[in-house]
C-alpha cells in the first residue's frame, strides 16, 4: 500500500501562503505538510526554510522534537495507545505490548507494508474509557490486551478494502 511519494511544490507553497510566510507559524506549516504526506519530506522542509527565512537547523530540531512529526513516512493507520496515568493503571502497558506483538513492530515503528504505525501517546483525554486505543480519528475504549487481536483484524480488513478501492 504505497502512498503518493512525489511532493507537489505548489501544494507546499499554498500551505506556506496560508500562514502568510510568517516564521512564527512554521510549526503549523509543518503540521499541514505532515497531514498531507504523513511525514516531513526533506524537500518540503527546504522549501519552508527558504520561504520563511528560517534555517534548516531550526526546522530539523522542530521536526525531531515534537511527537506530531516524523521524517519517515507513517502508516495509513496510526495506532495510538494512550499511556496516560489512568490508562496505565488500567493495563495500557499490556495493550501496547500486545499490539506490538500482533503488528510485529516496536512502539514508534511502522509496519513494513506502511499500513500501521504503533505509538504510545500522551493522554488523549477520555480517561473514563481507559485503557483507550485511537486508530486515526476513531477511539476504542476499554481496549485491554485480550481485544488486541480483534482490533488489528478489523483494520487489516479495512486496509485491504481500501487497497482494492485505492483509498
Amino acid at each position: 500500500m504505497s502512498i503518493a511519494m512525489e511532493i507537489d511544490p505548489q501544494k507546499i507553497d499554498a500551505i506556506i501562503e496560508r500562514w502568510d510566510r510568517d516564521p512564527s507559524f512554521v510549526i503549523e506549516m509543518m503540521q499541514d505538510v505532515q497531514e498531507a504526506y504523513r511525514h516531513l519530506p526533506r524537500v518540503a522542509l527546504a522549501q519552508v526554510s527558504r520561504a520563511t527565512r528560517t534555517d534548516m537547523a531550526r526546522l530539523y530540531h522542530i521536526a525531531t522534537f515534537y511527537k506530531a512529526f516524523s521524517l519517515e513516512p507513517r502508516g495509513v493507520f496510526s495506532v495510538q495507545v494512550c499511556t496516560g496515568t489512568a490508562c496505565h493503571v488500567r493495563g495500557a502497558a499490556r495493550s501496547l505490548d500486545g499490539l506490538a506483538r500482533e503488528l510485529g513492530v516496536a512502539p514508534g515503528e511502522t509496519t513494513e507494508d506502511l499500513t500501521f504505525t504503533l505509538e504510545g501517546v500522551r493522554c488523549l483525554g477520555c480517561c473514563s474509557l481507559a485503557p483507550v486505543v485511537a486508530v486515526g480519528p476513531d477511539l476504542h475504549g476499554d481496549l485491554d490486551s485480550s481485544k488486541v487481536r480483534g482490533l488489528v483484524k478489523k483494520y487489516r480488513k479495512r486496509a485491504e478494502k481500501m487497497e482494492g478501492g485505492n483509498a
Binding site: 534555517d55 534548516m56 537547523a57 531550526r58 530539523y60 530540531h61 525531531t64 522534537f65
Partner: peptide
C-alpha cells in the same frame, strides 16, 4: 550561519 543545531529531545 545557523548550521549547527540539536536533534530530538
Amino acid at each position: 550561519q545557523n548550521v549547527l543545531g540539536f536533534e530530538g529531545r
